[in-house]
Design a protein around this nucleic acid. Structure first.
Lengths: 342, 342
DNA sequence: TTGAAAGCGCTAACAA
DNA sequence: TTGTTAGCGCTTTCAA
């Protein structure tokens, strides 16, 4: 027999409404009354029915998180940050993974989030203008992580600056012929990281008086294997690079492996720097631009909670007014060194 | 203005009850009526309120997943399998991460899952008897992944057999002095993998007429660094091993790194085999016993759905009757070879 | 096959 | 500060 709010009221000798108020910590309850109610609730081991209070109040105390993947390092890290903060604050996390076009179009077509969540977190997803519009239409606060959306609040790193510093570090080591492995296809709208990182790379070169060479910018698909293929491509060049900036650590791993296969020694023959500080970067000795991923999740969750609790409505009338830019840090390990004297 | 079930009823010219029946696909609705209702719902872009239907029906169409970590490879992989199957079947996934003792004792103390989920999935968590009991008390189907619980349904791999085959493979290569890196402390109750893997390792040795040597069984804490420290310990031995079975790939990574540091060549001086087929094992060339992780998540989700939909109640009156044993597979890469002639 | 109506267990006016 | 009461938007008897 499940115990309901009325049972608690009866035991505490007060009305249902008072129990409701006392349990939710509303201010207008006498201290003694509140204590009695809490005791009664505890004695009966009472848990309120979320469905009932959601229906009555219209609030779900649930935040939806939309993510392209669940099984990849970055997303798991962000989500663990998100989950911790939400849970501490009494919110549930409702996950929507959209790994393929089908689940994605179903999601944006039906918007199953409607009526289920008080706010939405969008994790590093390239979104079309229509998709963004349909999210706005939910009319709840939205925070974007790793994606810049016009009029939207987001938690980001400074990709351009990070790439620029990574590249500048290679230049300072003495390299002049520096390649980049990244994402070079035409970018999906609002997916800014690869573009920004490429721009940072180019800018660092230009600032050092080096003319960017398009044949040194190759596609790595943000995977280990893609990074390997990209490296192979670079090694075919008549005048191959002495250093490589990879837009992600996983591409850097692939590049290192490919360099070894080709009989090159890293870093003596070839320097490679990555981006992210992926969990195995330290064990593989990969130099990288580190970003704090769980922190980004925590900040995003906080942003959403602030919007919810303070009633702060901003952009498009429905989000927090501003976001965060999380700093990155250069981590030097064993994959980078001055070029060999030639 | 949110559109409700009554709006749909009015437009379709039927009663609320009929709309409810039609939309949920109940059998006792005339085909023509159902079509009209669906059209009306579509025209109005109607979405039913989950809180309302949960309150009225008592079913939440939500499955709770309890996991020690969100940010680690294994759990992300399992969860992505779980999420996909649940989503396809109209269920929500509610996540509870319990990374530390505090969140854990809060969770088992208050059992926030009560009244919020129709079933529970427990991912590879060592549980005390009390904890298991409090889960049973929820009185919903429960499926355990990677953990064997008496009277509980679970999705598992055959850890003993996997470890035995991995070890036997090393023996077949000609090794006789084979170490194990794993978990050797007194085991938390119900956390069977490390114990089973150790048993498999020992059994393979005994079957080959090799007497297990306790000094060759060292603690690796299931982390990269722990694996490295364990390897260092093994290399101190007066008569160090020529091969190592690591209970996880991550420990194998650390072991390989440590071997390199010590100037040893893998596999010529030392063979190392891991367990899991972690995402980077192939890039690092680590031989391993592969397990299919997302599959385990999918199977567990199916088990839960079957219990829910067919009303199958089994163990302790509340779970699916049986589970699955997912096969493992030996994957040979470059970290294993016959021992050097000495 | 359909409709009328009584809840599901809370919250939030409003009144006291 | 507390109590009374009318919903919240569905589902589910029960009757037609």
């Amino acid at each position: 027999v499940p115990v309901g709010i009325d049972d608690v009221a009866a035991l505490a000798g007060v009305s249902t409404a008072t129990v409701s108020r006392a349990l939710r910590g509303l201010p207008n309850v006498a201290t003694a009354t509140r204590a009695r109610v809490l005791d009664a609730a505890h004695a009966l081991d009472y848990v309120s029915s979320p469905s009932a209070s959601r229906l009555a109040s219209g609030r779900t105390f649930t935040v939806g998180a939309v993510t392209p993947f669940l099984g990849r390092w970055f997303f798991g890290q962000v989500l663990s940050g998100v989950e911790g903060v939400l849970r501490e604050n009494g919110y549930d996390l409702l996950l929507y993974a959209l790994p393929d076009d089908e689940s994605r179009s179903r999601f944006f077509g039906a918007l199953p989030l409607r009526r289920r969540v008080d706010a939405v977190l969008v994790l590093t997803m390239p979104l079309s203008q229509d998709e963004v519009e349909s999210l706005w239409a939910l009319d709840v606060p939205i925070v974007f992580v790793g994606t810049h959306v016009p009029d939207g609040a987001s938690v980001l790193i400074d990709d351009l600056e990070g790439a620029r510093r990574a590249t500048r570090y290679l230049i300072e080591l003495g390299h002049r012929r520096i390649a980049m492995i990244g994402e070079n296809r035409d970018e999906p709208i609002h997916f800014t990281a690869p573009t920004a990182r490429r721009e940072g790379y180019r800018r660092a070169l230009v600032e050092a008086g080096i003319r960017p060479d398009r044949s040194l910018e190759v596609e790595g698909y943000f995977t280990v294997d893609g990074g390997g293929r990209a490296m192979a491509e670079l090694l075919q060049l008549p005048d191959p690079p002495t250093a490589v900036f990879a837009q992600s650590d996983e591409m850097a791993y692939g590049a290192v492996r490919e360099a070894h296969r080709a009989g090159l020694h890293v870093p003596d023959d070839l320097s490679i720097i990555g981006f992210d500080d992926h969990e195995l970067a330290s064990m593989l000795g990969i130099s990288t631009m580190a970003q704090q991923v769980p922190l980004q999740g925590r900040l995003a969750a906080r942003l959403v909670l602030d919007a919810l609790e303070e009633g702060v409505m901003g952009n498009r009338g429905q989000g927090p007014r501003q976001g965060h830019v999380v700093p990155t840090e250069l981590v030097v390990r064993e994959s980078t060194a001055p070029p060999r004297r030639s």
